[in-house]
Design a protein around this nucleic acid. Structure first.
Lengths: 282, 282
DNA sequence: ACATAAATGGAATAAAAATTCCATAAGAAG
DNA sequence: CTTCTTATGGAATTTTTATTCCATTTATGT
């Protein structure tokens, strides 16, 4: 009775999709570490395709031997065998729009609408990002980073449609160890939330058409009090421009009535990380 | 005078396109076996990316040692180093990537850092969006839209990193005339904010690794009370999956320690608009 | 044709990687 | 609480893979 040992007798999935399915179906019965690995593998398939046992184990936070156990528990002979599945997947696929349109065309009526909505928003986001890549002034971006890096505390200003960006900045700055205060204007306390700012701090203000009056007003107040203002906005005609020491222009594309926020997010992230790194230099 | 040995002093191409260029420029001056190998490599790049020295040597009809000589003659430390270039190309499977890097390389030192940060975050966003386009299940997306369209009120659940998405949904649903309540968990009142929800409403829960416990907990509470739960999450192993009636998978790419949110945003927008339109049909 | 340098094949060696094994810990069943 | 099973971490081992080295061949210039 030796040797039968592992779970599935040779019934290991031979392609990525079946593997994915198997993993999903087993997610409730897997031991902790194996589950952890399964999750990692689905999130970083390229890493599994190219990495070494030791490297992947480290990134996934498990022991090397766990990878082998994992592969065997799925029916493979060893990790190398499992890795082959991940590699095959990368070999096959190359990006093409042709394929995408084809898929869209083949989508049955029932799902067609959902498909085109998703395609539309994803498309708008990609366009925005592409456009930003060669429209943002690096000169200004560097200056913005300088300004924020010098500040003691960064006050984050963004209302309505762009509030999510300001909220994300609060998260990112926090994680990076940069003191930041999100002016969320709760109970209409915006002015009071900003009241503690001095000229040794800085304001990061975000606003797009139609410009929320609060943001413009508070930015103006800050400027009058000599607090450095960095602005992210969509044109030279924005009310923020007059209050800003440095301003960055981002033109987002829209789909239907909704404009993308992707480019602004990317820009905000670059600002946050840039600021933290510049501070670390000191 | 030993050790200088190889042709180019460390000036090895760092990306596929430069390598390609170097190879064609040397086409006429290369010795027979190296030329043979160069030609093979250009014709079977995947094989070079995935294969072993012995395997590739056999296919290309040369000795294993020739591969090492080949790599060194191009300025690499060894074959493994050269192979990395081929692997990177498969990882970053996007057409104009090359062009991007070129621009980056031309950027002057002063702004280089800002430029690469921006490029990195924009790149991660685009990768996420592309990936989502062929990984999201339209079937599930349609079901999610159905579920939300039937609901009286949509309760929005998202904490920490993904809070901005939930906040944006609140904005979008509001504009579209769909009643929605953002559970912002202010003063730790999350459970109370959700208390008024009934089985005629629905919850839209969003959470990615590392999953914020609140979100999982509240989603579980909702499920127990028979409130339909739609989840946006990053893998089948997410704690949200067990509570969800429908769940949508989005795997975001990251740059440095920060993961993109672009794909999730696009998906959330599609959900919101899809929901509003479906309601209008009635 | 000869001398010299460059290129090649192939075995030997070194390095890196995958896999096994076992002691211990955590968990389930009684 | 005890016993038995399953899961886990980590070192030891084996296997695979890359690289080096050198004897031999092939090309190059005089």
């Amino acid at each position: 009775m030796e040797e039968q040992a592992e779970t599935m007798p040779g019934a290991a999935p031979q392609d990525y999709e079946s593997l994915r399915a198997l993993l999903s179906s087993r997610r409730d019965t897997m031991p902790k570490r194996l589950k952890q690995l399964a999750s990692f593998a689905m999130q970083h398939p390229e890493e599994v395709a190219f990495g070494t046992v030791a490297g992947i184990a480290e990134h996934a936070g498990v022991q090397p031997s766990t990878l082998i156990r994992f592969a065997k528990s799925l029916g493979y002979e060893g990790f190398s065998h499992l890795q082959q599945i991940f590699r095959d997947r990368l070999r096959e696929r190359f990006p093409d729009y042709r394929e995408r349109l084809q898929t869209l065309r083949e989508t049955e009526g029932h799902h067609l609408h959902a498909a085109s909505l998703l395609e539309g928003f994803a498309g708008a986001a990609v366009v925005s990002l592409e456009r930003m890549r060669d429209s943002v002034s690096l000169e200004e971006l560097s200056r913005a980073i300088e300004t924020l890096a010098k500040a003691d505390t960064v006050y984050l200003l963004g209302a309505r449609r762009v509030f999510p960006i300001a909220a994300y900045c609060a998260y990112a700055f926090g994680k990076l160890g940069v003191r930041a205060i999100l002016i969320d204007h709760i109970a209409q306390l915006g002015p009071e939330q900003l009241a503690t700012a001095t000229d040794r701090d800085a304001v990061l203000a975000i606003s797009f058409t139609p410009y929320a009056p609060v943001t413009a007003d508070l930015a103006a107040v800050a400027a009058r009090r000599n607090i450095p203002v960095v602005a992210i906005t969509d044109s030279a005609f924005s009310p923020l421009v007059t209050s800003a020491d440095v301003w960055l222009e981002v033109a987002e594309a829209d789909f239907g009535a909704f404009r993308s926020l992707s480019a602004s997010f990317a820009l905000a992230m670059a600002l946050a990380v840039g600021t933290a790194e510049k501070r670390a230099e000191r």
